[in-house]
Design a protein around this nucleic acid. Sequence first.
DNA 1: TTAAAGTCAATAGA
DNA 2: TCTATTGACTTTAA
Length: 474
Amino acid sequence: APESPMSSSESVKSLTELVQQPCPAIETSKDGKSQESSEPPASESQSTTPLPLSGHSALSIQELVAMSPELDTYGITKRVKEVLTDNNLGQRLFGETILGLTQGSVSDLLARPKPWHKLSLKGREPFVRMQLWLNDPNNVEKLMDMKRMEKKAYMKRRHSSVSDSQSCESSSAGIDYSQGASPQPQHQLKKPRVVLAPEEKEALKRAYQQKPYPSPKTIEELATQLNLKTSTVINWFHNYRSRIRRELFIEEIQAGSQSQAGSSDSPSARSSRAAHSSEGDSCDGVDAEGPPEGKPSGPEADEFSSAAAKSQGGPAEPALEAGEEALRGARPSERAEPESLEDTDDEGRLRAPRQSSPPAPQRPGDALETLPNSATEGDASTSAASTSVLTGESSYKSKESSEKISSVPSTSSTPAAGSQKANSLQSLFGFSEAASSRNTRDSSLRKKKAANLNNIIHRLEKAASREEAVEWEF
DNA sequence: TTAAAGTCAATAGA
DNA sequence: TCTATTGACTTTAA
């Protein structure tokens, strides 16, 4: 029922169809409807995988992506969520069928869409697909059909092969998985997933606050002290940085839309203006430009803000310290795990999920939460103060680095990208002007915030490098 | 090489 | 079930 928001749906059609080709191939095979007997129920399809997009179809989609005007990623995901929810369609089905992505990826994408200008071509693809899907008048029906088919297939298999199932299962379990990657024929035991204990996470966060880009040495230390593999620590930093960035984008967008919306103030408005401080919100400002830290509020903001804040402190010694300090509150050590199956290499770090982690209810880091986010204000000094609070212990140092150094926003620039073609395509995509104007607004906001963030990051980076290289400061 | 971006896939929770 | 989270891997840029 919903969909086609804009009137221009007609023109869209053609595009839609183009895009659609791929899909059909994959899952639906063209018109939807019947077919697909062969496809296993979704999940399994993986092995076959599907890349829905591969093939020629991929090309066209890529072309579309390349020619696509700026899309309102936040708005798109919002609408997609509505449609899915209203029609009781799951992310898995939608992802595998329409986007060629797994459920987890879809969830993430829908919950934290990045702004268009921050996306690479590849990253834009799912949004273009979503837009086209939204424009397709039969979108819901097609998915429903798929759903039915899957169910049917499932039932079928269940019946027809009761006994089989066993075999199937065993086979899959035993071998399939590993094949993709490593040729280690041996036991194909999959390596257990590493699950970091809360204390470890806290320690890593603290380390991040002190140094978002730790040196290899620091990483090594952290790994040793936390009893983690080096690669785990490295991965953690990569993931954390990128996730934080995403959170920021979202907040910006939300803040922007809210403010612009003006009236409605939803509770969520937290970030924007804040006046209350109790929780930690900061105000960041959308308006404010200056605040280096930028990070505001939100629930998780605490981490961010603190993170950002942290950097400022004072005196010297970074790397090591960072590690140590971080550790201080958290003591993971206990977790030694005796049983680790494979950790032979290092000291065993892989741990089975949570059991080992004991009660870690209170993390030292909690203090963070209360932190004021002075960040907002801007200056390092403020944040510094908070920092110390946070950690409780010393203030670290990041050197004044932060002090106002050159900030070079690297990323923020957004090329206006091919606006020319864009216009014409715009209609095809069914993009409304209103939307675009809104984008503009959002984007300016976003840009500001992004710039702030970038500055911070940059400064941190610089500071970090300096520290290592020189003793900084003098 | 390093970092970022994009995903996968296991798993925690509801 | 379904969705959210997250460690790890892969690809892409610099």
